[in-house]
Design a protein around this nucleic acid. Structure first.
Lengths: 341, 341
DNA sequence: TTTCTTCTGATAGACGCCTGTCAAGAATTG
DNA sequence: CAATTCTTGACAGGCGTCTATCAGAAGAAA
């Protein structure tokens, strides 16, 4: 039993392959009723064009661009590495991926970047700040026919066609549940450190965390959030102050990057064994601290998965292929010392 | 800049495309020194054959078979569903996947199955029992030129070319760490239930669990392992007895399937809130119990990932393509109520 | 009805590689 | 040295789809 091809479809529909192809690729004007005939034949035969052959024939390259934050935080650096690695692998699949670094924390800069890069690319993946200027820039790209997917941090109200990242409010809830369970009956204060209170992912994590803490573990008191701009030195300062001010601190949840700052402060204070510390993102630093016991749990999003997912989505949109939604859902990884990859 | 093709390679090497192709596919006798010339040209040009074109040209189908256990445990049932779903999706990629159910717990039966299915398939993925007879059957397949990958449970000493599954001793360690941390300072007994003590995955999980428990949480006492054959009714009986015999039971780790048996027993006893229960595999049952709070943590292996990974490996072996090892590593998922997918 | 527009059909030529065949050249044997 | 055997070259044809072109056919407008 051979594959069904467009030829079979054409025959079934009593039309020519040329017409079937026109319908398939929306190339030229075709009468509605003819379109219908073709579509019926396709349905009847359960036909799906062979994407291998299609891509071979098209012979065109896919040009994508990843826009990431500049800066010295390990997660983003490793994220960039991963993008480069993926890019290298995909060259042989006719996919060309450029990497563009910019100041994501600054809305006008990010927006300007997005405005300027548009027309060379078929698709753009961006770590986005949820800000009106940025949203506008994203919508501009979309209007000019560029597919946009957000990664890591979303702008849900924009016209982006997909978000490849974790559900951050669930991530915050997860952190809270583990914090509460690890602390058990112990009482005391829990500190919260965030990179920025205008990054959507940080806001959502905090929201989820506080929601569960207040609801499920009311005996624990949450301290006011400290802002760190994801800079580990500032994180260290902030943590040190927190430790000094609260002798009854029993837990720390670091919503953003700069995990090493907390590690340093904790280890200097000698209280790493009594304080439950939950951090985000698996990097060399956090990994080591987890093994040492300074970090108790790492909540992680798999950079490789997100990138590959983003690329799959961009490619699918580029040639109007189908998407398996379930496969593109990014999971929230929990790492303890023993299930490190 | 166009892609480099075999034509470029041929030119660079001063040979014909036919010869380059012979080298590439080891088809006919080629003098060693000629082979060397071709390989040098390939290296120089960093050439990689276009796999799309190759598969299109070959036009051959890949025939694979998945051998799974019969039985009524949800994990395996869902695993089977997932295989079917993958099969359906892959038909359009020239991959035909058959599903073969057999009694995996019974070594001779499994071995006989493996012996009999060989020659129709290019590759076989099997949930294997680590038993000499089975090992022999796997080796037999390999010797007859069939690629074999093990899934879920491994037979490391066999000639199988890959294992698509989690590291089970790490999984056991993970369970122990979470058990210990959740229990905190509480003292008492911890029960262990396994499907079979001759399934390698169960043995390894138990080993990892006990290792960490003895080492890190010596104040908790591990009860002797109960065997359940992964049948939830037997699990329930066993658990009920355990609950009755040990009023100071504080934790249960169910190494195998049949999680619903524990759930039922716990809920009948009314002690689900005081006992930390850690189970394996996310299914409808365990999911509900996790949300309800009867299960505290689920350790999971992602069936979809394992299956896709197995298929990728089988395909790669079938046409001698390269494998990205890092991508094929299956992670140990930890689920609490809040990070359920 | 005639004259334009729209649609549709037929077909050729890619895309990059595989398979097979046939013949010519090179290396080996006796 | 001739007679074999091994290696290589040169093509032709195909995989399933896309792109482009040109000629008809069908519909709409006059």
């Amino acid at each position: 039993m051979a594959r069904t091809t467009i030829e079979d479809v054409a025959q079934k529909a009593g039309l020519s392959v040329a017409t079937v192809d026109r319908v398939l690729n929306g190339r030229a004007a075709v009468r509605p009723q003819t379109v219908e005939r073709v579509e019926r034949a396709i349905r009847l035969l359960n036909f799906q064009p062979d994407r291998l052959a299609a891509r071979l024939a098209r012979g065109r390259d896919y040009h994508f661009c990843f826009v990431l934050p500049v800066g010295n935080n390990s997660f983003m650096i490793e994220f960039g590495e991963e993008v480069r690695a993926t890019a290298k692998r995909m060259v042989h699949e006719r996919v060309i991926i450029d990497l563009h670094l910019t100041d994501v924390f600054d809305a006008p800069t990010l927006a300007a970047t997005l405005d300027s890069i548009g027309d060379i690319y078929d698709g753009v993946a961006v770590v986005a700040l949820d800000h009106p200027r940025v949203k506008e820039a994203i919508n501009g790209l979309v209007d000019r026919g560029v597919t946009v997917v957000t990664i890591v941090s979303d702008v849900p109200s924009s016209k982006r066609s997909h978000y490849a990242g974790i559900d951050n409010s669930s991530a915050g809830r997860t952190a809270a549940t583990l914090m509460g369970r690890y602390l058990g009956a112990r009482k005391g204060k829990v500190g919260l450190i965030a990179g920025s209170l205008s990054l959507r992912d940080h806001i959502e994590r905090r929201f989820g965390f506080e929601q569960v803490m207040l609801h499920e573990f009311p005996h624990l008191m949450i301290l006011p959030v400290m802002e760190s701009r994801d800079d580990w030195q500032r994180v260290e300062t902030v943590t040190t102050e927190m430790l000094a001010a609260h002798p009854d601190l029993v837990g720390i949840y670091n919503v953003g990057a700069g995990a090493r700052g907390v590690v340093a402060a904790l280890e200097k204070s000698g209280r790493q064994d009594t304080i439950v510390y939950i951090a985000h993102e698996l990097t060399d630093t956090t990994r080591r601290a987890l093994v040492d016991g300074t970090i108790d749990v790492i909540i992680n999003q798999n950079a490789g998965h997100e990138i590959r997912s983003a690329v799959r989505v961009l490619m699918a949109k580029a040639d109007k292929g189908p998407l398996i939604e379930a496969m593109e859902k990014i999971r929230i990884d929990i790492f303890v010392r023993d299930n490190l990859p």
